[in-house]
Design a protein around this nucleic acid. Structure first.
Ligand SMILES: [Mn+2]
Ligand SMILES: [Mn+2]
Ligand SMILES: [Zn+2]
Ligand SMILES: [Zn+2]
Lengths: 141, 141
DNA sequence: TTGCACATTAGAATTATTCCAAAAAAGACT
DNA sequence: AGTCTTTTTTGGAATAATTCTAATGTGCAA
């Protein structure tokens, strides 16, 4: 499922990396960057760690999010998805292909620069999600 | 609950305004702009239309959203909230007060202008949600 | 090597929302 | 009004993602 030397070191400061946690994390970092749901992650985890339960996948994802190792992504009320890209970005859901694409800001732009925020606001987290279609729907990725 | 002449005309093109739909809509337009959940809307609707059911509130909200009369707002996986403000805006959840504030772009800014979108993208809808704290937490609104 | 804190597990519980099938209401036409 | 047709409402059941629970397993450290 992955080249033997492709392991980024799967360590997260302050977090005990059990084999389940390691595999959940590896699947996200090392596998297809398609923002899988917990159920999809479970399928992938089972290739290397059969017997892993969905509850454990949820537990692992929760602790990985808490440790800022991954991000949780929500589109409306669909199942949560998970993303290993820690740079600031939003998400575009292409309703043609079903694929989700990471979206970055144009260079130099900060979210706070473009919003009319009430004075004294400190933003702890934000989420930008877009839905639409890619007209030219031929891309390999 | 509201001044007798404060009714905006509660009509929506192409939509039959039953008394339940009218009241759900009125509660949102005419009541506190606090982005209530379906359950909160039901409570408010019951003041003027007792006997209304939660299923009906969901039905009304769905059809109002479809007709672009209101917007559905999601914060992570919390209950959906509903908003009668049709101008383009995002939402800021102040975790001090629990209040949700509408956030607009600075004048002249378009979301598409600041994002690195793949060529050929057409955005059909988007959602911007922020979470954080207002330091100076004395405001009347 | 035993103790203990922490992690995993299966299955039950929760909860927001949707579905269903029957009753009620709203129009349209007479 | 009275009949017919279509839409809406309703209570309760069903769904589905996620969380909880209580029991079992694991891995270091004394
Ligand atoms: Mn939406
Ligand atoms: Mn979040
Ligand atoms: Zn992402
Ligand atoms: Zn709003």
């Amino acid at each position: 499922m992955h080249s033997p030397d492709s392991h980024t070191h799967l360590e997260i400061p302050g977090l005990r990396m059990t084999k389940q946690r390691k595999e959940v994390y590896r699947v996200l970092v090392d596998g297809p960057q398609d923002h899988p749901t917990a159920a999809q992650i479970l399928e992938r985890v089972k290739c290397n760690q059969p017997g892993t339960s969905l509850a454990t996948v949820y537990n692992c994802l929760e602790v990985l999010v808490e440790h800022n190792a991954i991000k949780q992504v929500n589109f409306d009320r669909e199942s949560s998805r998970y993303c290993p890209n820690l740079r600031e970005h939003g998400h575009f859901h292409d309703t043609n292909s079903g694929q989700i694409h990471d979206i970055t800001f144009k260079p130099g732009i900060q979210l706070a620069d473009i919003l009319e925020l009430p004075p004294g606001t400190s933003i702890e987290e934000y989420e930008i999600t877009l839905r639409g279609k890619l007209k030219t729907s031929e891309q390999s990725s």
